[in-house]
Simulated scan of single mutants.
Amino acid sequence: MFYVGFGQVGIFDKTYERTVLQINGVVELDGKVYLGQGCRLSVANNAVVHFGKSFVNTAAMTLVCSNSVFFGEDCTVAWNTLIMDTDWHQTIDVVNNKVKPCSKPIHVGCRTWIGTRAIVLKGAHIPDGCIIGAGAIITQKFDKENACIVGNPARIAKENITMQRKN
């Protein structure tokens, strides 16, 4: 059910691209999960990462969870991606002394594709069927399904589009 370090991605050298698993919290699996070579998965105490069935990461994904990260079914995550639900440091509004949380849950819907070098940060919500463009930085909640989300700041570039999947 949980395949780690699988595959042969030509541009990654298995000698130097090490996989690191640091799991102190909970990892939930709804089905087969494939984490490619050079993956780094860190799940803190009391944190939960949920992988829906048929999750695939090509290679070198870094996933840091101190709160909650949820992936729906049939998600594809390309190489050199960063998914992190925390920035590890609380901030304070100096006008009203309100402390802002350093972590917020991440939700990635079903049938999503996160492109290479994309960054998904705390509080992000990606609806079902979305494509996250290469290098995009997702820091907010999106509501539109089957959209192509690109850039920094992230924006919807195209609607009514999704990744074609093989049977």
Rank of each mutant, 00 (worst) to 15 (best):
L63Y: 00
I11K: 13
G38M: 12
C148I: 15
R40A: 10
F142C: 05
G129A: 13
I137Y: 14
L35M: 05
K32D: 11
I126Q: 05
I114V: 15
N152L: 07
T58S: 14
G151C: 09
T91M: 06
A124G: 05
I137A: 05
Y16K: 11
F12S: 05
L35I: 06
P101T: 11
H89S: 08
E159Q: 11
V56S: 14
A134I: 03
N160M: 02
A78I: 01
V77C: 02
G7A: 02
A147W: 07
M61Y: 10
E28N: 11
N167T: 06
V94W: 13
E17D: 12
L29Q: 04
T162R: 10
E28H: 13
N146R: 14
G36W: 00
K100F: 13
T58Q: 09
P105V: 01
D128H: 02
Q90R: 14
A118D: 15
K53Q: 10
G52R: 03
C130D: 14
S68I: 10
R111H: 06
V77D: 01
V120L: 03
F51R: 14
I138D: 09
G31Q: 09
G109I: 00
E73N: 10
N152I: 09
Y34S: 04
Y3S: 15
D87S: 13
Q37S: 09
K32C: 04
A136Y: 05
V108H: 03
Y34D: 04
C102Q: 12
W79V: 00
L121A: 14
D85F: 12
T19F: 06
Q90D: 15
A134D: 09
G25I: 14
V95T: 15
G7V: 11
T15G: 08
W79G: 14
F2Y: 10
I137F: 09
L41C: 07
A154L: 05
C65E: 10
I132L: 08
T15Q: 15
K14W: 02
A157I: 05
Y34Q: 04
N45I: 08
H50W: 01
V56L: 02
M84Y: 01
R155T: 09
F71T: 05
R18F: 07
A118L: 04
A59K: 06
C110V: 04
T81E: 01
F12T: 12
N97K: 08
G151T: 03
A44I: 12
M163R: 15
A124V: 02
Q37W: 07
R165I: 01
G109F: 03
V95D: 15
V49R: 02
G10P: 03
C102A: 08
G135E: 06
S66M: 15
L35D: 04
G133R: 03
P101G: 10
